[in-house]
Design a protein around this nucleic acid. Structure first.
Lengths: 154, 154
DNA sequence: CTGGTAGTTGAAGTGAACTTGAAGTCAAGA
DNA sequence: TCTTGACTTCAAGTTCACTTCAACTACCAG
């Protein structure tokens, strides 16, 4: 199982926590790259692990793959990204986290004062109408997607 | 457009913010109920609005429809749910919100101390491994889904 | 009674993020 | 060299929460 300092797909899968199928998918989507053996098998550089850590972190924070791709495209192709590169990338998450925490806190406030008291009003409820975008006139509020969950255990 | 005190699908859609198609979907899924006219058209009782407010709130908090259905099934069929019924239902959200906020805060801590400093480690990073479920051996960490977002504006 | 808007159904489509399956190829230890 | 397990590709399937479509029917103001 010696492969110089290049990693097989299984090794990367084991160390990153992503399934091989996900790694192939990410490659198709341009999120990670791999070299090939003469026989066409993937061989990953070690730096892909940090990249994958970034991807997982970003997903956990709630970014879509599209956003992740955009972020990764701001990294230099030529050289291995430095600490400063990663720091710059992660700065935008900080803001996002702050916003998400604020949103959830608002919801919790609303829970105490609104649903907790039983008023659960369509017009004013902070939970059914977060951010006080109360009773949108148009086509009505769109889908507001899923949250951060505990990692699957099984 | 007078319909006694029963509401048409359009009226419910306008007042709840859900599209008619979503209302039909929820009915198929057993989340809301409607009576029918002799011609087969839906007529909703006013109480469906509170039920829908509950559904939207739960979705915003991040519950799946499956979980919402489970929650709604604990409501009494016979009588109109009381404030106490709704309060009981919403209590579990409180816990969920607390957990989500805690998770995000942990992520933010991790951001400052881990990615912020450039260490971004697969083994220890609080962001790529939330809750310190570090480096799961098995099939690897599963998909950890999207966040709470700002409501669509368009 | 007529016309037009609003409503009905069932089936199929959407999009994100992958997974699964079939059919075949490569790598490496014995 | 053989064999076995790891790997390859491409296409299709999965889940969630709906939306869209086609074809048809109901409701009700005039």
């Amino acid at each position: 199982m010696k492969t110089g300092d290049l990693l097989t797909v299984r090794q990367v899968a084991d160390r990153s926590g992503f399934a091989p199928s996900a790694l192939r998918y990410y490659e198709r989507e341009g999120l990670v790259a791999a070299r090939r053996t003469t026989g066409g098998q993937r061989r990953y550089e070690r730096s892909v692990l940090r990249r994958l850590a970034f991807i997982r972190a970003a997903r956990n924070v709630g970014l879509t793959l599209e956003e992740v791709r955009a972020a990764l495209h701001t990294l230099p192709d030529a050289r291995t990204p430095t600490r400063a590169d990663w720091t710059r990338l992660s700065r935008s998450w900080r803001r996002r986290l702050d916003e998400q925490i604020a949103a959830l806190s608002a919801l919790r406030e609303g829970l105490d004062s609104c649903i907790g008291c039983g008023c659960l009003s369509l017009q004013r409820c902070a939970i059914s109408n977060p951010g006080d975008q109360a009773a949108r006139q148009g086509p009505g509020a769109r889908y507001l997607p899923p949250p951060l969950r505990a990692p699957a255990r099984e």
